[in-house]
Design a protein around this nucleic acid. Sequence first.
DNA 1: GCCTGCTGTAGAAACGCTTCTAAAAACATC
DNA 2: GATGTTTTTAGAAGCGTTTCTACAGCAGGC
Lengths: 361, 361
Amino acid sequence: MRGKPTLRDVAERAGCSITTASNILQGRSHLYREDMAQRVLNAAHELGYRANSVARSLARRRTATIAVVLDPQHARLTHNVYAHDVLDGVLAYLEPRDYDIRLITPRTNDPAAVWRRIDNGSIDGAILIAPVMGSSLLEWRHYSTLPVVAVGSTLPDEYLLSQVDIDNDAAMASMVEWVIQQGHRAIGFVKGHPLHWSAHQRERAFRRVMAQHGIPIREEWMLQGDYGSETGASAAAQLLRQDELPSVVLCANDEMAIGFIQKCRDLEIPVPDAISVAGFDDSYWARRMGIALTTVQHDRYQVGYLAAQILLHQLETGDARPQRMLIPGALVVRRSVALANVLAAVPDPHATILTEGGSRL
Amino acid sequence: MRGKPTLRDVAERAGCSITTASNILQGRSHLYREDMAQRVLNAAHELGYRANSVARSLARRRTATIAVVLDPQHARLTHNVYAHDVLDGVLAYLEPRDYDIRLITPRTNDPAAVWRRIDNGSIDGAILIAPVMGSSLLEWRHYSTLPVVAVGSTLPDEYLLSQVDIDNDAAMASMVEWVIQQGHRAIGFVKGHPLHWSAHQRERAFRRVMAQHGIPIREEWMLQGDYGSETGASAAAQLLRQDELPSVVLCANDEMAIGFIQKCRDLEIPVPDAISVAGFDDSYWARRMGIALTTVQHDRYQVGYLAAQILLHQLETGDARPQRMLIPGALVVRRSVALANVLAAVPDPHATILTEGGSRL
DNA sequence: GCCTGCTGTAGAAACGCTTCTAAAAACATC
DNA sequence: GATGTTTTTAGAAGCGTTTCTACAGCAGGC
């Protein structure tokens, strides 16, 4: 026996066949007499035997490995905060179930190359993180028969893909409802990345609720962003140049809200006194930065966790019918949105944005 | 041919042996006549053949997969900003070289279980991310013969482990030198996590340079932290309670510096007017938060990139001698540290901390 | 004593590929 | 035309598992 001990070594030492050793080590001891089982277990332990997972995968025709695939557009983990939370959720579900994770960050957008990389026999299924419109990831059907779950993008039905996402539509709707309830009628909006479905959903929900309340939408207050804080800042610059201003601006995510607010600061425009700002996502970093942002909180960790759960369910049952799961968000009211009328009556030049603890920025 | 096409299918279609097909598809066309090679290549293309990587791994006895292992103490990716940058660097190096990444986040500290998980034949080598003192990861020699590189922890030599890390010692030394040069003599220090080697190195460098300059260290100004911003804040609280204060406090990382500064704000103690604060790491988030923190910048991405490079080199050459690589950091002077004497002369009650762009916090 | 039905065990094929070894074919040499 | 040399191709033995199938041995029922 040179190198690592194999099943044959264990069998030899226990004085039995490879079959017997294999069965017992897989927990099928009840097939054998007590002493046989013990002999094998002891032999394995004495040799420090560990089953070779590659050989096992080949024989079993399954690898107990799941790929987590980032969109080529967002292949840098550093800049993809969303992916961290989702990954943690995925890991939390898979690790105890002895599944492994293969992290794939394609550097190209050629679908054939991307899928050759993903589906090369080494994984049982894949979780696609926030595929954008036109992403090569979405062409999987042409290249793969693997079970796949997409997260972070609520795709049109024709993609025939299992999905887990937050309920962008409902969450944004409740945000708009709430803002209106606070007395706001002049409402601006900063849109998200045009290639993200979530951006369109959030905008659509905004427009719908506005229409339901008979509030006209001023297109000059609808600003294009891309989910990055810089575009939030430039949206602020662009908006604040106008003669007439909205009383509140809803940003399609927190990043842009942060950018927006920081630009307001630079221009010495107090938030929420002069203008209210709301975000979406309840990012850890907005809180960390001491910005008491009114926003929508949702559980990205949970998204990852559920995606992993669905994927494993599909693997185990073979039921590959696309499933869709929407997780509700929750409105988090902090201080970046003020009552529309009250503020007009009682302006307070000293109040700026407050942290949750109440300290001044 | 049912299911995916195999090498046998390709060979059959091309009318040659499996050997021939295998060789040609691996790029050894020169062994064969031109037309044979073409036939095989065409057959493979027509069938949409993709080599099964599990079978290949078994036959080749190498998997072209590297494990990236987080310390069980820091298994949540969300809370491990360091890991993101390193991972990006690792991915950037490995992806073009057709290596895959297995992400492992052990949930237990039992070394046998951890290593059974890591070294089960499915990887060729491992990169350990910032193993802490006493980590089960460091006991690898008892459980594995895999090539391993540790990053983010400059370990004592006896671990016999290849390492890539930033040069904590030199970087902290230059920070201390600079601060002294700015006229400071009353210098406090907030220590990092007691289980991290980096924390000890940074502290040791601090003490050494202080001694070199003949400046006595006041132990009541040496505060224990754990690299988290909360401990930075409590260090501030603890320090500011004292009668005599240092003119500058060096924090062992940016997180703690941020916490420290935020506590100062809460207590309405102007930084750097009343007290200067420096950090270490040049975290993206300090910049984002508009804190113009004087700190040490270093390239975590590069750390990951080099670690991957070293690991692959070891795999390819078989040269497993532990290598050590230190990456220098660079002092980044911003505004959170003021000249010690100038400030005493010209106090400016209105100046608080400034962002790089010059805007007020 | 023959058949049936257990139980405990082993043999052997399969998974899909790589690669060592050797045979067949082609060519050159004298 | 026999011999040696080189090129081209194929056979077959792995890699370390799993698992299907079969085969002893033995009890009980007729």
